[in-house]
Design a protein around this nucleic acid. Structure first.
Length: 570
RNA sequence: CGGGGCGUGGCGCAGCUUGGUAGCGCGCAUCGUUCGGGACGAUGAGGUCGUGGGUUCAAAUCCCGCCGCCCCGACCA
């Protein structure tokens, strides 16, 4: 591809709104352009990278026998009603009407359609197991897009679905997908950590996420360097030490003016935060007020809390009015004397004696609060965030916390969507059985961004060969004055097309500085320089982008490199 | 949705406080000179100052509404 013809434009300055390196470089290099918040166009270079990432995924999907299909982006709302998600999902699911007034949705994912396809196609156990997948645009009207391509609203996802006769079959499919994912991310040049994860709106029994460690990641991972334990903080459970036993003492109201935070309360009373009970208030989607009680030295984990109360549509912080309506006082709140609220107590609080808790009266707390005696817990569960240094649940060593970006996930779904679609098969036993599903997603654009995050320097992108839009970047210098340069550069470019491994050819009438700078920004693995100087030195200058190592190579060797016969010149 | 910031030629920004001719760098076009690390000179094109309303003799500038984008928090590939 001749750069003089390429539909692109590089920028000398960083775009003002690009915070992450991947976003900055992809915009500056002319790979992508933003159309709106979380909505991007792919220019030719970006499109090629996307296609190459897709191809890696496709090859690994095909290798495990997953079959490529394509499902629609626009769905009749009925199928989402049938699965219950039409009502369970909030405004991130975009709903609209077609010209005849029928309710439609923009697909966020495709479990419903798969369920219907299975109901239509699969009749007999002989047709199972089967795995299908597609690359398709998803629209998720996220509350907030961020980080360039890391978190967008419209994106292409590879979503695969396994369809099995029974649980053992699902387990096998799940492992096959997991293996494919390991190979995919390895080929993409991404170092991933596999963590146990929450099942979220998918439901189902088990899930893992493939995470790339990155300070800008939106998930917090609990990792143990000693034994390899890894879990998303949303589901990580670590042992909490038992508090020292103490006989319950009499409840005692104390004046604690101006102590609306645990820190100020503990300081005022001269006790440690572990002797206090903190209340946090949330509203579930079904209108229940949730009062969560954790010890003062812990934080509430909202995912765990939502799961503890079966709030399938999520929870949000309650308003002051909602808290007061239940007879509690924000800043001085506790379930003592409260009404119309679901009280969820962290398991540690349930066995911690004589805590300080709110008196539901401005400026007052109680000492010696004991769960069970002074108020009743509707639910007792682990609802706290794991903290750095907590004991690993596997080996007891101190865990560490790291941020991660989710580049892929795998879910054991079960029969939720096949039940909704009536997808059953006739077993060997002559009876109908539900088909058991799993689902497996990879966001293509997010992976591209993560690759750039992992492979760049201060000059630009450094593509791994597997996903580079072009195998090499040919820079011609002095072609206008030296016909030999132009002739050789043209010939090498032609050769690359004939060989089916096209290279990028900077044939523009630009100064050498501009060309080298752009070549480094764009990030092809090899930079080939043809100039009067390189010809005089015996050939073509070959620079490895990743290392900056350069040497002049005979023309025949460079031709072999372009044909793919020699991957790395010695 | 809560909090913070920003909208001025393609990109990056100044101008706004204190209302009065719309500016700078880069990029772009033409010509000439350059040519291995973002060249130089000359000439030139390009802007309803996000948008609607208001105040005023006069609004990029002051006031009100709206829209859009970015960042921080609640959701996910």
């Amino acid at each position: 591809m001749r750069l003089s013809q390429l539909f692109f434009s590089t920028l000398r300055d960083d775009p003002a709104d690009a915070e992450m390196a991947s976003h900055r470089l992809l915009v500056r290099g002319g790979y992508v352009r933003q159309l709106g918040s979380g909505i991007y166009s792919l220019l030719p270079l970006g499109f090629r990278v996307n296609k190459r990432v897709e191809q890696v995924i496709r090859e690994e999907m095909d290798r495990i026998g997953s079959q490529e299909i394509e499902m629609p982006v626009v769905h009749p709302a009925d199928i989402w009603r049938a699965s219950g998600r039409y009502d369970a999902i909030g405004p991130e699911l975009t709903r609209f009407k077609d010209r005849n007034g029928r309710d439609m949705v923009l697909a966020m994912t495709h479990e419903e359609v798969v369920g219907l396809l299975l109901a239509d196609i699969v009749k007999s156990y002989r047709q199972l197991p089967v795995m299908i997948y597609h690359f398709q645009t998803k629209w998720r009207d996220e509350p907030r897009a961020r980080g360039g391509l890391i978190r967008v609203r419209e994106f292409v996802m590879k979503d695969a679905y396994s369809c099995d006769r029974d649980q053992a079959g699902l387990d096998a499919s799940y492992e096959a997908q997991k293996g494919a994912y390991v190979r995919i991310f390895e080929r993409l040049g991404l170092e991933t950590v596999v963590v146990a994860s929450d099942v979220g709106i998918m439901g189902g029994s088990q899930a893992h996420e493939f995470m790339v460690l990155n300070p800008a990641g939106e998930d917090v991972l609990v990792l143990c360097e000693a034994c390899g334990y890894a879990a998303n903080r949303q589901v990580a459970v670590v042992p909490k030490p038992d508090p020292l036993p103490e006989a319950p003492a009499a409840l005692e109201e104390v004046a604690t003016p101006g102590t609306t935070t645990i820190a100020s309360l503990a300081a005022f009373l001269g006790v440690g935060p572990e002797r206090t009970a903190k209340a946090a208030f949330f509203m579930a989607g079904d209108g229940r007020l949730i009062t969560a009680i954790v010890r003062g030295d812990f934080e509430v984990n909202e995912t765990k809390l939502a799961n503890a109360v079966g709030a399938t549509t999520g929870i949000r912080p309650a308003t002051i009015e909602e808290i007061r309506a239940a007879g509690m006082e924000p800043g001085y709140g506790s379930p003592i004397g409260a009404h119309d609220t679901v009280v969820v107590v962290d398991d540690l609080v349930a066995r911690s004696p004589n805590l300080v808790a709110g008196a539901n009266r401005e400026g007052y707390h109680y000492r010696n609060v004991n769960v069970g005696r002074d108020f009743v817990a509707d639910v007792a569960a682990d609802i706290t965030n794991v903290q750095e240094g907590d004991a690993c649940p596997q080996c007891g060593m101190a865990v560490i916390l790291r941020n991660g970006i989710e580049v892929g996930n795998i879910f054991k779904l079960g029969t939720k969507f096949t039940d909704a679609a009536g997808a059953t098969y006739l077993g060997e036993d002559g009876r109908e059985h539900p088909i058991i599903m799993g689902s497996y997603g990879i966001g293509v654009g997010r992976n591209v961004a993560c690759i750039v995050e992992a492979h760049h320097d201060d000059k630009g992108i450094i593509w791994p060969a597997e996903v580079a839009p072009y195998a090499a970047h040919l820079v011609a210098i002095g072609a206008a004055r030296d016909p030999q340069v132009a002739e050789l550069a043209d010939r090498l470019h032609d050769l690359s097309i004939e060989a089916g491994r096209e290279i990028l050819y900077d044939d523009r009438d630009e100064s050498p500085g501009v060309k080298f700078t752009d070549a480094e920004l764009l990030g092809m693995p090899w930079i080939l320089t043809v100039s009067p100087r390189s010809l005089a030195a015996g050939g073509v200058e070959v620079t490895e982008r990743a290392t900056g190592e350069r040497s002049t190579r005979p023309i025949e060797e460079v031709e072999a490199l372009i044909r793919g016969e020699a991957v790395v010149p010695a």
